[in-house]
Simulated assay, not measured.
Amino acid sequence: MTAFTVRIPDDAAEKLDSLAAKLDRSRSYVAAKAIEEFIARENWQLAEIEAGLIEARRGDFASEAEVEAVISKYIRPE
């Protein structure tokens, strides 16, 4: 396991300490979990963006009917 120093604002450190206490875990454990989750979320999002760009470069876009079907789920008829 690698150790390194990260500088964070004082209020974030206080919140981290409070959360660690509530979870009965160390500050280091909670910070490591937060970093792991951030990395996983960012990697997923970037992979989705890259896949979308590949589709766009191929010209693989949603049809007008597909777009309307999605929009109709969220718009109430008046």
Rank of each mutant, 00 (worst) to 15 (best):
M1I: 03
A3F: 06
F4R: 14
F4S: 07
T5Q: 10
V6Y: 05
V6H: 07
R7P: 08
R7Y: 12
R7L: 08
R7C: 08
R7F: 12
I8M: 10
P9R: 03
P9I: 08
P9E: 15
D10N: 04
D10E: 11
D11K: 14
D11Q: 15
A12Y: 05
A13P: 07
E14D: 13
D17C: 14
L19P: 08
A20L: 05
A20G: 02
A20D: 01
A21P: 11
A21H: 11
A21C: 09
K22F: 01
K22S: 02
L23Y: 10
R25Q: 13
R25P: 08
R27K: 10
S28I: 00
S28A: 04
Y29G: 14
Y29T: 12
V30R: 08
A31I: 01
A32R: 02
I35H: 14
I35L: 15
E36Q: 03
E37T: 10
I39N: 11
I39G: 10
A40V: 05
R41M: 07
E42K: 03
N43L: 15
W44A: 02
W44E: 04
Q45I: 12
Q45W: 15
Q45T: 11
A47E: 07
E48M: 01
E48D: 03
E48R: 01
I49D: 02
E50Y: 10
G52H: 00
L53Q: 10
L53F: 12
I54V: 04
I54K: 04
E55S: 11
E55Q: 08
R57T: 02
R57P: 06
R58Y: 03
R58W: 04
G59F: 06
G59W: 08
D60I: 09
D60A: 12
D60S: 11
F61A: 06
A62Y: 04
A62Q: 07
A62P: 14
A62N: 07
S63A: 07
S63D: 00
A65Q: 03
E66M: 02
V67H: 06
V67F: 13
E68N: 02
V70C: 13
V70K: 03
K73M: 06
Y74N: 09
Y74R: 10
I75R: 09
I75L: 11
R76T: 00
P77Q: 15
P77R: 10
P77W: 15
